[in-house]
């Protein structure tokens, strides 16, 4: 019964969540806290805090945590499948359908017209992330890190992995001495 609830809870939260993992956080909270009472609101906030200090998609981290709490590793598997499988299958089906008609003017027009929307979506994400950065480490540190990252990525074509690792080290070694 718990497994079925895990499956249904995460399935519903993610099927209704448009805009990626972060958009489905309130929906997951509704299932986890209000409907099934697996966690209190305070505990859910702690899970999010843990999720934010780890890499990877937020929805799958919440699903892993809850699945493990409720039903061990089998619970992890069920919660993850419910979170990930329907949307992944949907994208594969849709793209197979589109690949068949790639040369048609209808599909070419669709492909062209999504470019401006994606540009704007990325711009809004940039603004939001920039605000997050400034509110957590201040404008000066954010600007320094961003400037160095920009030159490393654009001018010297450094692999993003190294830039991120360098930022990590800076955060561990330098930032604690500045605040």
């Amino acid at each position: 019964m718990n497994l079925l609830h895990l499956f249904l809870g995460f399935l519903i939260a993610n099927l209704l969540g448009y805009g990626g993992g972060p958009a489905s956080i309130p929906l997951m909270q509704n299932e986890i806290v209000n409907r099934y009472h697996w966690l209190t609101n305070a505990n859910f906030a702690n899970v999010l805090a843990l999720g934010n200090s780890l890499p990877g998609p937020i929805a799958t981290k919440v699903a892993t945590y809850l699945g493990f709490q409720v039903y061990g590793w089998l619970g992890v598997l069920v919660a993850l499948v419910a979170t990930v499988a329907p949307s992944a299958a949907g994208l594969l089906l849709l793209s197979r359908l589109l690949a068949k008609h790639r040369q048609s003017n209808v599909i070419r027009g669709m492909t062209l017209l999504v470019q401006p929307v994606i540009a704007v979506m990325m711009l809004l994400l940039t603004i939001q992330m920039g605000k997050d950065a400034v509110s957590s480490i201040g404008i000066l540190q954010s600007a320094v890190i961003a400037l160095v990252a920009f030159f490393a990525l654009v001018k010297f074509k450094v692999h993003p992995a190294f830039v991120i690792i360098a930022a990590f080290l800076y955060g561990a070694l330098v930032l604690p001495h500045l605040s």
């Binding site: 401006p116 940039t126 950065a133 480490i137 961003a146 991120i164 930022a167 990590f168």
Partner: peptide
């Protein structure tokens, strides 16, 4: 320390998102 490490990565992510916004704008 953990919080500082994660925070230091966010500006890098911001730059990468801005680059992508620019490239898609260019394509549009």
């Amino acid at each position: 320390v953990v919080r500082d490490m994660v925070s230091a990565v966010i500006p890098v992510i911001t730059v990468m998102l801005a680059m992508m916004a620019y490239q898609f704008g260019e394509r549009a």
